[in-house]
Amino acid sequence: MSTLSFATVVVALVVSANGHDCTKYNLTPSDQSLIDMMTHYLHTSRKADCPVTPSQHDIGVTYVRWGKKTCPENSDIVYTGQVGGNYFSNKGGGSNYLCLPNEPENGNVSSNSDEGLYGAEYQINNSNNPSGFPTNLYNKEVPCSVCRRKEKISVLIIAGRKSCYKGWKSEYNGFLMSSNKNHITSDFICIDGEAEPLNNRSSNEQGALFYPVRAKCGSLRCPPYKDKTEVLCTVCTK
């Protein structure tokens, strides 16, 4: 029954209860119960029709801080973990990197032969280390953290800049990285300029591998870009 129909019934009952000649009649318990029920319906249905506006405290955006176990100042940490991805030479499977939590809820053992989730390692040494980037990360596993920035409604990753445009705030900046050009295709991600290892362990188990990205002039216009330069990046919120 529509709200209008309910309202009509309530008015009719009230008029009937009070009488057309303004003489007051006593309501039976069933009459009063029906009026109370309809009044409650009108109240709750009108409340449901009103849009619920979230408080400023409830508004926020999330982003991944690649290469760090902590979140920047003013951001809350949702969880921390390690970067995962596809094996560097697999011809199929996922191409994106994942921030895997340190407290997984594991499924059952499977006989499926399509193993497609590996840890990630920095493949950065003296020959390709970006300027100002830590120098002791070769073959170290990569951490990550998922962060939430309160009171923001937009998040934007900008490749080619270390600062945000006017009206945006940089959550962190660093260097654009991805897989080697001779390996499988992977996402471009923004590794923090002050990246750290997951722990002190150093291994060469391959998996998903990170290499710094350099600009290549041609179809990429130079200027404004410069050939063979490190590509900077920043994560911005507004």
Results as ranks from 00 to 15, higher is better:
2 S>E: 12
3 T>K: 07
4 L>R: 11
6 F>Q: 05
7 A>C: 03
8 T>M: 07
8 T>Y: 04
12 A>P: 00
14 V>Y: 03
15 V>G: 00
17 A>W: 06
18 N>D: 04
18 N>Q: 11
24 K>G: 05
26 N>D: 04
27 L>T: 10
27 L>Q: 11
28 T>W: 04
28 T>Y: 08
30 S>M: 09
32 Q>M: 13
32 Q>S: 13
33 S>M: 06
33 S>K: 13
36 D>N: 15
36 D>A: 05
41 Y>T: 10
43 H>L: 14
49 D>Q: 14
50 C>E: 15
51 P>E: 10
51 P>T: 06
53 T>W: 04
56 Q>L: 14
56 Q>P: 07
61 V>C: 07
62 T>C: 13
72 P>V: 07
72 P>D: 12
73 E>L: 13
75 S>W: 00
76 D>C: 00
80 T>P: 00
83 V>G: 01
84 G>P: 01
85 G>V: 06
93 G>I: 04
94 G>F: 12
95 S>T: 11
98 L>S: 13
101 P>Q: 00
101 P>N: 13
102 N>H: 10
105 E>I: 15
107 G>V: 03
107 G>M: 02
108 N>E: 14
109 V>D: 02
112 N>A: 12
113 S>F: 13
115 E>G: 11
116 G>A: 03
117 L>V: 02
124 I>M: 04
125 N>W: 10
125 N>V: 03
126 N>Y: 15
127 S>L: 15
128 N>V: 11
130 P>E: 08
132 G>Q: 13
134 P>V: 11
135 T>R: 10
135 T>F: 00
135 T>P: 02
142 V>Y: 06
143 P>K: 09
145 S>V: 08
149 R>V: 12
149 R>C: 09
150 K>A: 15
150 K>F: 07
151 E>G: 02
151 E>I: 02
154 S>C: 04
156 L>P: 00
160 G>D: 10
160 G>W: 11
161 R>N: 15
162 K>F: 10
163 S>Y: 13
165 Y>N: 11
165 Y>K: 08
166 K>H: 09
167 G>E: 05
171 E>D: 05
171 E>N: 01
173 N>T: 05
174 G>C: 03
174 G>L: 05
175 F>I: 15
176 L>K: 09
181 K>W: 05
185 T>K: 11
185 T>Q: 13
187 D>I: 02
193 G>K: 05
197 P>M: 01
197 P>L: 03
198 L>S: 06
200 N>Y: 08
204 N>Q: 14
206 Q>K: 11
206 Q>G: 06
207 G>L: 04
208 A>C: 09
209 L>F: 01
213 V>C: 08
216 K>V: 09
217 C>H: 09
218 G>K: 07
219 S>K: 09
224 P>G: 08
225 Y>G: 00
229 T>A: 12
232 L>W: 10
232 L>D: 10
233 C>H: 05
237 T>W: 02
